[in-house]
């Protein structure tokens, strides 16, 4: 039998379309960077966000409805239509439910939270990461590639499809290192080196910024992350090595000086400007963080 749209069904069709459109315009546009992950870390963080949001919606929407119903039904009107039980104040069954149901919902969120928290702390096995040493300065980002012996300011290139291990420190007040489309943030703190691994699935340019206020120029602590193919990455490294100037200790000190900067590349950097000792937070698991 041919299926025909009843007027009601058509309503539903338009409604679905309107919701989809509304979501595209308001909630799911590309500018919602957190909702458009481009790498495995950000994807797993988003999945957890969705799970937790659904679980929370299952709690608050029924409570809202119960609340609204209560207000309508038991409002004080002259006819006093609602049931009036001024002394009712306990019910054993309800009270058990009130504790047990939320406990179950919390468990539904807590178990994957703990699993993911541990999982994200491990580099994926059998993949050799590119290591980038990150130093936040007032108000710019200095990146050193210990494997390639090059350095950049305010931009990085990374190979897509390969994990990147960021080792984060600061020679300034604290900042957080954040590339929303690749994954969540981590602090840069003076005297500490914190590890963070991220990966880009596909080539592309992603925005990075600081999430921790560190003075008047902190707004300008944006950097771009260009994910490219492995071959393109290697040729970029070669290009920096051959064309960019070297960084002397004096150059480093001039970079550290307070102020903002554009993009810079350096074919070398002096030894010892990245801390070699740390308080001991390291990545656990298959590929322990190695200090240079």
């Amino acid at each position: 039998m041919p299926k025909r749209h009843s007027p009601r069904g058509r309503h539903r069709y338009w409604l679905t379309l309107a919701i989809a459109l509304g979501l595209t315009v308001s909630g799911c546009g590309q500018q919602y960077v957190v909702l458009h992950p481009k790498g495995p870390v950000a994807t797993s963080e988003l999945n957890l966000l969705i799970l937790a949001s659904v679980a929370m919606a299952l709690v608050i929407i029924p409570v809202w409805m119960l609340f609204a119903y209560t207000l309508v039904r038991f409002r004080d009107n002259p006819r006093h239509e609602g049931v009036f039980v001024p002394k009712w104040q306990s019910s054993r069954l309800l009270e058990i439910l009130l504790f047990v149901v939320p406990l179950i919902i919390v468990a539904v969120i807590a178990v994957p939270t703990v699993q993911k928290t541990y999982a994200l702390d491990r580099l994926p096995p059998k993949k050799d990461p590119v290591v980038i040493n990150v130093t936040s300065l007032d108000w710019k980002w200095l990146f050193q590639y210990p494997g390639q012996h090059i350095a950049t300011v305010n931009y990085i290139e990374i190979p897509a499809g390969k994990p990147v291990l960021f080792e984060l420190t600061a020679d300034s007040p604290m900042n957080t290192f954040w590339i929303p489309q690749l994954g969540g943030m981590e602090y840069t703190m003076p005297g500490e080196v914190l590890p963070l691994w991220l990966e880009a699935n596909k080539p592309g340019v992603y925005m990075g910024r600081s999430g921790q206020f560190s003075g008047t120029g902190f707004v300008h602590m944006v950097f771009s992350v260009k994910a490219v193919s492995s071959a393109a990455f290697n040729s970029w490294v070669q290009q920096v090595k051959t064309t960019a100037p070297g960084m002397s200790l004096a150059t480093y000190h001039s970079i550290v000086k307070i102020g903002t900067m554009g993009h810079e590349s350096f074919s070398s950097y002096p030894a010892g400007i990245f801390p070699t000792t740390t308080h001991g937070f390291t990545l656990t698991g298959s590929s322990p963080m190695k200090m240079p």
Binding site: V34, A42, S44, E45, L46, L48, L49, A52, I109, T113, K116, T117, L120, T176, P180, G183, G184, M185, E186, G211, Q212
Partner: peptide
């Protein structure tokens, strides 16, 4: 409080 989500939402 969902730790990995907080990595994205912090600050």
């Amino acid at each position: 409080a969902t730790v990995p989500v907080d990595y994205q939402m912090h600050n």
